[in-house]
Design a protein around this nucleic acid. Structure first.
Lengths: 149, 149
DNA sequence: TATTGTTATACTCTATAACTATA
DNA sequence: TATAGTTATAGAGTATAACAATA
């Protein structure tokens, strides 16, 4: 997947951010593929683990995913035996999501794989450079989103 | 499209790059939509303008696009009256692509719109900060691609 | 009436391979 | 036999709206 960085359009920093974003997500996909899980599914699983009482709706708003997307993701997490749905006892419209034992294992392995992957992806930068990059990213993200914690 | 930046996964710099890349491409889409053209089509058009003798194949390798994708893009550029195909006189398998008068106008307007859009997108950063960000991006891109000019 | 989760649908994008015409 | 461009097809992802069950 070669491309020019010196063409008029590609010279912009915006273009570079787009390409880097694509590279980063591909890197995460490869890293997690060893565990048989995709970044989105892993992220949902992690969110369930962090918020034991969340409904599908709450997870979808937390992650900025459409509720109709959540259905398939949770379906696949259930099929893979990583999470389960239980009806909420207080509001029977809702599901309460739960990470299974096996899901916890995948989470733990995935987190450490992602840590390792991130270290590799940014290996060309010094600790200080990476910190600068992180700060600049946060600054830009916050100016372009109304609703980020 | 809200999302959390403080969840374990989102804390990584890689995640932030992915989100920023998505924001940047959406910004470019909005910027160019006023001219009725998509980023990819605009990029192809700009590449044709920069390389008057390029075939579809050469453009597709230059931009890292699959040749089968090029067909539709050039079709749409032709339908919109922005570019035209001429058979190469030396090799009749090839097309030589050409930007029309109208295509040149769109290119000019689009370039200045993108310049303005980029200035807005990075408005939160100082000139120096933006330069640092650009350098860090180039460094990372080059370590992860074998074939970038 | 409003909300949670689900389903249906249509649209875009992508990846693969097969095809044609030329070389 | 190889190459440029094209076509066909199937898969993934997304966005919209409609629906059933529950509040």
């Amino acid at each position: 997947m070669a491309f020019q960085l010196n063409s008029p359009l590609a010279a912009g920093t915006g273009f570079k951010l787009v390409k880097l974003g694509e590279m980063a997500i591909r890197y995460a996909e490869n890293t997690l593929s060893l565990l048989g899980i995709k970044p989105r599914h892993f992220h949902v699983l992690a969110t369930i683990a962090d918020n034991p009482e969340f409904s599908q709706k709450e997870i979808s708003t937390t992650l900025g995913l459409d509720p109709n997307i959540m259905v398939g993701v949770i379906d696949e997490l259930e099929t893979a035996g990583l999470a389960i749905r239980r009806r909420s006892s207080t509001d029977r419209r809702k599901y309460v999501l739960e990470v299974t034992k096996s899901g916890q294992t995948v989470l733990k392995k995935g987190m450490s794989a992602l840590d390792k992957g991130e270290a590799e992806f940014f290996a060309a930068l010094s600790e200080e450079q990476k910190a600068v990059l992180d700060t600049l990213c946060v600054q830009l993200i916050q100016t372009h989103t109304s609703n980020v914690d």
